[in-house]
Computed example of a mutant assay.
Amino acid sequence: MTVIALTGAAGRLGGYLREALAKRADKVILTDRVSPEGLRANEEFRQAELDDYDAVHAALAGADVVLHFGAIADEAPWDEIWGPNFVGARNVWEAAHQHGIRRVIYASSIHAVGMYPRTQRIGVDTPHYPDSFYGLSKCFAENLGRLYWEKRGIESVMLRIYSCAQPNNERSLGVWLSPRDLVQLVEKSLDCPIVGCSVVYGVSANSRCPVSNEGAKFLGYEPVDNAEEFAPEILAAAKPDPSDKAQLHHGNVFATGDLGVSAVALMGRAEDGEG
């Protein structure tokens, strides 16, 4: 593997990954709507809107593998989310097929299964249960990736990322994905010899983790960080509200907010990495 393409390269998760990717690849193609800062010697920026197939096709030319991290990472009105999240996913997989790219690693999300109750521990084979248009876009892309695997032989790893935000509430103690573990998860997804079309949850080794990666052990992902180190401070200030329906779902406010309404705004902070 000598050339890695990264969509959504100007986003925060892309920023977490760039250094590690630059160290392992001869060339890293960075694509986004705007150029990320501080390009390294072996990084090349190619501007593209995800819903523009010709631009995506040109951006992925020469890549051996694609990390598809570009999307609207929040709930949004249907007309806004359709292009980047739905059409964009199709464009990435079709361009990968046309270029002979062998593997797509996709930043999916817990919101593909966000309507399940938090009291239910869910695994990698749990059926889709989206909590929003955003979650539905992740279900679509996961199914699209499986279709391209079955019909065209493109392998995929679907990373159902929970939250890469700094833990600051009770929920985050179970669902945190540290930047270091994100890098490891991506590297394991790159290095595993055969992945077919696989799902893995993007979570660290949290003592309170509400999901199971038992069915994805073949990837070799062994997270090292644990949000429990933040527990004393967070729990001392916590005010659990059993009547808050958002706290009863894996998808939090994505599961209880109205369709098309920003969940990030409802939370009052950016859930970096919620998808």
Rank of each mutant, 00 (worst) to 15 (best):
D125N: 13
G145L: 03
V92H: 08
N168K: 13
K23S: 14
E43Q: 04
R90W: 15
A205E: 14
G202Q: 01
V56T: 01
S178K: 03
G145S: 02
Y162S: 15
W82R: 14
D244A: 12
E187Q: 12
R152K: 14
V183Y: 04
V183G: 00
A22Y: 03
A238Q: 02
R40P: 10
L39N: 04
A73H: 06
E229Q: 09
L266Y: 00
E43W: 08
A71L: 06
A59P: 08
D181K: 07
P193D: 07
G202L: 13
G273S: 05
I154C: 09
S243Y: 08
D191M: 07
E19W: 08
E44A: 11
M115E: 08
M158G: 02
Y148V: 09
A107N: 11
G62S: 02
A41P: 07
P167I: 14
K245G: 04
I4C: 09
L144N: 10
I194H: 14
A205T: 10
N226H: 06
E170N: 10
E214M: 00
V261W: 12
P117Q: 10
L6S: 00
P223V: 08
D26S: 15
I4E: 03
P36T: 12
H111C: 04
D32S: 13
A63M: 06
F230V: 07
V104N: 03
V104L: 10
G70E: 05
R160Y: 04
V264E: 12
F230N: 00
H250G: 12
K245M: 12
D26L: 13
L235N: 09
L185V: 08
L60N: 10
V28F: 04
R160T: 13
I105N: 10
S198T: 15
E170H: 09
V28W: 03
V175C: 12
I154W: 06
N206F: 01
D79I: 04
